[in-house]
Nucleic acid binder design. Structure first.
Lengths: 329, 329
DNA sequence: GTGAAAGCGCTAACAT
DNA sequence: ATGTTAGCGCTTTCAC
């Protein structure tokens, strides 16, 4: 910048004014400075600029998801980036892989960079880390899950009600031996969905066989194995409820390989669900809508909205396609 | 930091030394400073710290993809983030949505933030922007596609050869009326794949009917419509080659809806490809491997490797599953 | 309209 | 082992 000022024969302050396009500068001076900038290929250092600025804003938001490679979080991330870009913000992102240490590390890195806002899919674990990360000019919004009793906005779906609806749907089609396939119990959404399953079963007066409840399924193949085991029991399941998209894929594979006709309702919609045979009945919701809502909430907070904690519950809907309407033989 | 220094009764430099864990400080002093840090809830401003540092590194890398919501780029992003995190770098990301203006804007934002490295899936357009972005302490690597004649490393697959292999595979199964469904001709990969298609057709002495070449398909539904049109011609296609994952999904839908048995080979593998009926034959390659290779190359460059431009070509393989082996009736 | 000086939060280079 | 001074690249404040 000093070089530019020297080349244009002006002070650094004038260069600053020209770059920022504010403050009074004579058109002729603007031209000279612009020319010098061109010639020297000068580009302002945004970090240095922001350091001295009054608003103390970095125009940075951090996004922490379970795993960006998962289509659900990828869709969410796409919406978040879109909202951020529209407002002139840049997105830092990280995948926690459901590891608290890693989450804490990423949170520390982001806050050290003084992000203005934080969008977090919290993994189960100590909630103290969130309190430490938020505050002092850093707003925070939870996405997909809340975290303990932390006083932070959250955008969620009612997985408990939706899972209940899914399981009641299976029960209505004559099933009583219904298997639950879910993610780790450390994850709030997984617990909620299991709760919905239990409630629907209890409502119908069906006792729950512990062998029909598989938890901790983090990958498609483990889900497939768990589903296969349930299909090969002495008294096999006649229906399965799968707790998320990845698990549903595993269940689809297991059912197809078993050859039998077993009912299935999955949580989360996915591409090609309607092209499988049978098409897969799911509890659908919109990851992009979730990202957008969360981003909007976050930017409201960043703009100074200090109203009480808000919890936005997005709708889910049961998409009937065929796999969930198979009756037990 | 001054507050901490005052509270601990030391100079700011001692605080700096304690935070960075280097330089000689008496254990007793360390304790006092650490305590003051705890009490005041002090956290170093990473941006300010890096501004003054000698290496002039921001520990930031930028990732620019077509669309993060697309599973292919999401997988790539996951690998990039993993490699970056391992090395203590943070990832900024953006989706260009194949819009040159948007790409240029994001590149400008990233370079203004002085990212140490840039991983870019370049969209077709002026190549001048890349020259402007790279250089001056910012390394750059292209992923998935090169850009014109810009002297920048690239990690690619040989889409031309792979597409040729796919089309020859269809020809070997007796097809002559083979439709090409591809993305915009502005995209290098799309052009390469079309080239492979043309070459394989020419090799077999099959003239290309322009009506069988559909380009510019950016979404599943447009691809579906284009495929449907080819299936409903007076002399319909007996086989389709789909230029990417999204287009393949559209083609699958079109074929299933048409009810006929039309052969299909798709570019890019996708989840559930083997669970469809018929299972989909594809040209498979690994987005995560691509992200990893690109990140490694980038970090090598950032470490000062100034060897001539490298071009890493990752392998593809034809995964025979059924849809590509259907013979014309 | 423009420039000089001070300072954002921190570290390099030298003191002591 | 610790403190002091200068300065990273920029903007604020205030003087001209």
């Amino acid at each position: 910048m000093r070089d530019v000022a020297a080349a244009a024969g002006v002070g650094v302050m004038t260069v600053s004014r020209v770059i920022n396009g504010d403050g009074p500068v004579r058109p002729e001076t603007v031209r000279r400075v612009t020319l010098a900038i061109e010639n020297l290929g000068y580009r302002r250092n945004d970090m240095a600029s922001r350091l001295r600025r009054a608003d103390q804003s970095t125009a940075l938001v951090g996004l922490l998801v379970d795993d960006i490679a998962n289509p659900f979080y990828a869709g969410l991330a796409g919406a978040v980036e879109e909202e951020a870009r529209r407002r002139g913000y840049t997105v830092l992102f990280g995948s926690t892989k459901e590891d608290s240490d890693r989450e804490q590390e990423l949170l520390a890195v982001f806050t050290a960079r003084r992000v203005d806002g934080l969008l977090v899919v919290p993994c189960g674990g100590e909630t103290e880390v969130y309190r430490a990360a938020a505050g002092e000019g850093t707003s925070m919004v939870f996405v997909d899950r809340p975290a303990g009793d932390v006083d932070v906005d959250a955008v969620l779906v009612d997985g408990r009600a939706a899972a209940g609806q899914a399981v009641r749907h299976l029960i209505a089609h004559g099933h009583r031996r219904i298997g639950y396939l879910g993610d780790s119990a450390t994850i709030w959404t997984a617990r909620q969905r299991l709760l919905g399953y239990r409630e629907a079963m209890a409502e119908a007066g069906i006792g729950i066989d512990p062998a029909l409840v598989a938890q901790g399924l983090r990958r498609m193949y483990t889900a497939e194995a768990a589903a296969t085991a349930m299909l090969r029991m002495d008294t096999p399941v006649t229906a399965l409820f799968a707790g998320n998209d990845v698990i549903t894929l595993g269940a689809v594979r297991a059912i197809r390989r078993s050859g039998g006709s077993v009912a299935l309702v999955g949580f989360d919609d996915f591409v090609l669900a309607d092209e499988l045979d049978p098409p897969v009945t799911v509890i659908a919701h919109d990851p992009a809508a979730m990202g957008e809502a969360a981003a909007q909430l976050l930017f409201d907070r960043m703009r100074g909205d200090d109203s009480p904690r808000r919890e936005i519950v997005l709708p889910t809907r049961l998409v009937v396609r065929g796999s969930g309407e198979i009756r037990p033989c």
